[in-house]
Amino acid sequence: MSVLALGSASPLDLPGQARPLLARLDPRSRVMAALVFAAAVVWCQSVAALLAALGLAAGLALLARLPWGTTMRRLLALEGFMLLTLATLPFTMGGPAVVHIAGIGLGVEGLHRALIIVLKANAVVLATLALIGAMELPALGHALARLGLPLRFVALFLFTVRYIEVLYRQYARLRLAMRARAFRPTACLHCWRSLGHLIGMLLVGTLERSERIHAAMRCRGFDGRFHLLDEHRPGRLDWGFGAVQAVSLLLLAALDVM
């Protein structure tokens, strides 16, 4: 299992099983669906609509067959990120106090605002993991190119994805070698320096590797672009999915306005 695979079903891993519904969509549809969903969620302002949006995102996660454990860990990490920013809101936004902690009232407006942000952030992340994260990354790169991103940027993206795998394996090898010599990460200068040397080693090796790649690519006439040979066309499934999503988001907007 590689560092980049979210663990979602790649068709090769599941002999005899049908691919998840989302995996059969055109990659472009998935990217567009994620962007439109995120924009709609950011626009919504009511708790009811955002709860519904979170429900939709959970539905997408089921359709993509996201692995439960990993997904929950990602969402927990997200709550951790937001904790500091959101924890201050109930104290700073005023409104009638609902709870008193150590003599300081927690304002109802701040709690409401914090709840809205938590719902929005989680809904978007869950939908993004389902729609884009579970996709194979080269497919994502091609979708970005077909959606009009500069080919040079897409070439950079595809190259990077390829070499993350290679470098991660190299990193894991070095880390294993350190562990074999009884290295344990703790907060001390020696430890920081050892990790620094680890990444420095990777960097020097990487720079040399990049020279070899450059030479090899030049032999093959590389001009900074990858030519896209696959011809995806959105099929009936894509139009159907798009229609269902459009209706869901309109209902969401209606719920929000009510």
Binding site: I164, P185, I199, L203, S210, H214, R218, G224
Partner: peptide, 26 residues
């Protein structure tokens, strides 16, 4: 980002991604 620099920049981008997975205890 001239064509001849794409592989170099990409390999370094990959390195920075991998390095950001390393957690330093503080």
């Amino acid at each position: 980002l001239t064509p001849e620099r794409v592989p170099k920049v990409a390999v370094l981008a990959a390195l920075f991604f991998v390095a950001s997975l390393v957690h330093f205890p503080v």
